[in-house]
């Protein structure tokens, strides 16, 4: 399968962000993001690429997304902030979903068996 080469210089960064110069929320380079199951209709190509790479790799940080997509980190920060606003991306919160203690014990046992 052949894929077109994308020249990173042809489409300028401000076109990619749609003219947004600052992220709408505070997102750090190491902030982990997880794709949510929301239809990706109406999104710009790069927003879909961000979503695509996130859903393929589980959770990714901004820096990792930038590296995967060969985009400047600032651009990914702005795109990700927008996607978080629209509910396509979320920062996973540990509150209610902490693994059961038994599961952890099982994992520990499994790990010991491996060693």
């Amino acid at each position: 399968m052949t894929r077109p080469r994308r020249d990173p210089d042809l489409v300028r960064a401000y076109v990619v962000t749609g003219g947004v110069l600052r992220p709408s929320r505070d997102v750090g380079l190491v902030t982990l993001l997880v794709a949510q199951d929301v239809p990706a209709q109406g999104l710009a190509p790069e927003q879909r690429r961000v979503l695509g790479v996130c859903s393929r790799h589980g959770a990714l940080s901004i820096a990792e997304i930038a590296a995967h997509l060969d985009l400047p980190p600032s651009v990914v920060t702005i795109l990700a902030a927008g996607l978080m606003d629209s509910g396509h991306l979320a920062v996973p919160t540990p509150v209610a979903d902490v693994p059961d203690i038994d599961v952890l014990k099982e994992v520990l046992r499994g790990l010991r068996q491996l060693v």
Binding site: T31, V34, C54, G58, L60, P92, T93
Partner: peptide, 27 residues
Amino acid sequence: IATADTQPLPPILSTSAPRPSVAAAWQ
């Protein structure tokens, strides 16, 4: 970028669906 990867990158956390719990712990 010359071609796309036919071989996915080595998963950093998981090959399966997103694991928010694991991610959250790391986070």
